[in-house]
Design a protein around this nucleic acid. Sequence first.
DNA 1: CGAGCGCTTGATTGAGTTCAAAAATCGTGG
DNA 2: CCACGATTTTTGAACTCAATCAAGCGCTCG
Lengths: 192, 192
Amino acid sequence: MSNLFKSFLISSTIPSDLKEKLKNSVTVKKIKKGTSLQVKGDRLIYDYYVVKGLLRSYTIDEKGKEHIFMFASEDWLMSDIESQVFDKTAELYIDALEDSEIEMIDRKAFREINAVRYFDGDELNKLFKRVAVLQRRVLLLMSATAMERYEHFIQTYPDIVQRVPQKMIASYLGITPEGLSKIRGQRVKGKN
Amino acid sequence: MSNLFKSFLISSTIPSDLKEKLKNSVTVKKIKKGTSLQVKGDRLIYDYYVVKGLLRSYTIDEKGKEHIFMFASEDWLMSDIESQVFDKTAELYIDALEDSEIEMIDRKAFREINAVRYFDGDELNKLFKRVAVLQRRVLLLMSATAMERYEHFIQTYPDIVQRVPQKMIASYLGITPEGLSKIRGQRVKGKN
DNA sequence: CGAGCGCTTGATTGAGTTCAAAAATCGTGG
DNA sequence: CCACGATTTTTGAACTCAATCAAGCGCTCG
């Protein structure tokens, strides 16, 4: 079964009744590009592990504008941590940008397991890394120009740049598609 | 000794030689308002647990402008996670906004201990919470106006509002002191 | 092969910055 | 405890970066 979650099942620190529960809480799915996995306000929330493909999470503001919070490609975990931590309904929309293969785990079961199991060094490191990435993102949003943020993005996620339309990168950077187009215009002029 | 770190010492999952190491890696300090604890580029990095008082972490951009990443008051852990995770020199400046009492732990020792010890549910929850707070902050920086961000701040951190000058709140929100002053002007007009 | 989506380009607008200077508040020494 | 200098906050005018609005082009995929 699951890449991500099978490790839990062999972990000796989890009581066997919980293992059973976990096994029943994980679903493997193949979904088509465009499929919606979660919309704001949902009560049943899952965490999604991406086996293959590409997901995005985002908000929609009062004016109907989308703001992409993150992309998740192969081997990434996509989750709406804010609603998870504060036990609220979903904050974010999540959908597929490519045909994808995912594993979803019921949030409640996941929490029960996290309460008793131990995170190993590797998992902890991933969690710390996520905090580090967010730290950088906040600092960039506060102090860097749109062009600097774009440069940073293509340095950091060259693969994503290839796989998603420009307007979604703009949405991730916090600018408009037109804005990004103009920046790209200046960039090529600036070279040679 | 330490509020934060004494729990490690009674934890049975840590080998006793590491406990010894940990004991030697923690320093308790009283510092005066304005004292600098870390500057960008430092190689020796510590994590700071605030027993009493108030710390801030921030960057300084090319134009010399400060951008506050976070405040840490009583019972918060202040750390430059980005430099920690990627094992770089310090990214952030850290100093005291009030006379403070802190516990500092050497980063290297902290990492060694985290590699072998287990995080309990409570610690994990704090870590998740930090991710959640950063998620919100990113979304606000991307989609909310300066005034909305200010409203959110005074809702979320009413105590900090009382304790720091406006210009530092402006710096945290990603706007200029003048900008915040104008927003506050509009706000009072908007009421009654 | 046509309709719609994505990207570009230009003109206009606006939220927030910068620069400058006055007003209010803080804090420290006498 | 007051006074004075330093820091913080406010206010106003000019400016700037990026948003908005609008129109046109080029793909692609249905």
